[in-house]
């Protein structure tokens, strides 16, 4: 029998049916068709599936969909305001902080979670915070720079 789950996803009331064994990642992609969240490894190592649940950054591949009953889930989709990009997204594009893009939604969710807590992180803080997000294309430098520049921009500096 399918389980009926009610949660808030990207600010909207959401109801879905799932199997008890299905991960949140599988439900986001295959049931709700919110494919902004990506799967890299499925075992917690790459961070492509990062989402925020009740304010905490987690891997949606290591969480059962049934666990989000009554909880609030934020995915990469809610980072932009409709068609208006979040400064992080704009910087990623301007700085070429992505190539294939598979890791990008995870990096954006994780970076936003950092900036929501700390608008003035050091480079080392950014690197440690993002250590659970793997990128096979960019070599990380442009990603880290984009995050630092966005932080500066949001603090009101010139970036």
């Amino acid at each position: 029998m399918k389980r009926h789950v009610v949660a808030t996803i990207d600010g909207e009331h959401a109801e879905f049916l799932c199997d008890d064994g299905q991960t949140l990642l599988d439900v986001l992609r295959d049931v709700l068709h919110r494919t902004g969240t990506k799967e890299g490894c499925g075992t917690g190592d790459c961070g492509a599936c990062s989402v925020i649940v009740d304010g905490r950054l987690v891997c949606s591949c290591l969480m059962l969909a049934a666990e989000v009953e009554g909880r609030e889930v934020e995915t990469a989709i809610s980072i932009s305001n409709g068609d208006t990009l979040h400064p992080l997204q704009r910087r990623f594009l301007e700085d070429a902080a992505l190539q294939c893009g598979v890791c990008t939604p995870g990096f954006l969710v994780a970076a936003k979670a950092l900036l929501d807590r700390n608008l003035d992180p050091s480079e080392s803080e950014v690197r440690f915070w993002l250590a659970g997000n793997l990128c096979r294309c960019t070599g990380y430098d442009k990603i880290v720079r984009s995050v630092l520049e966005t932080a500066a921009e949001l603090r009101g500096g010139t970036g």
Binding site: G44, L62, G132
Partner: peptide, 9 residues
């Protein structure tokens, strides 16, 4: 223990 994401759980 683990990354920021793992820390959340």
């Amino acid at each position: 223990i683990g990354s920021t994401q793992i820390q959340g759980r």
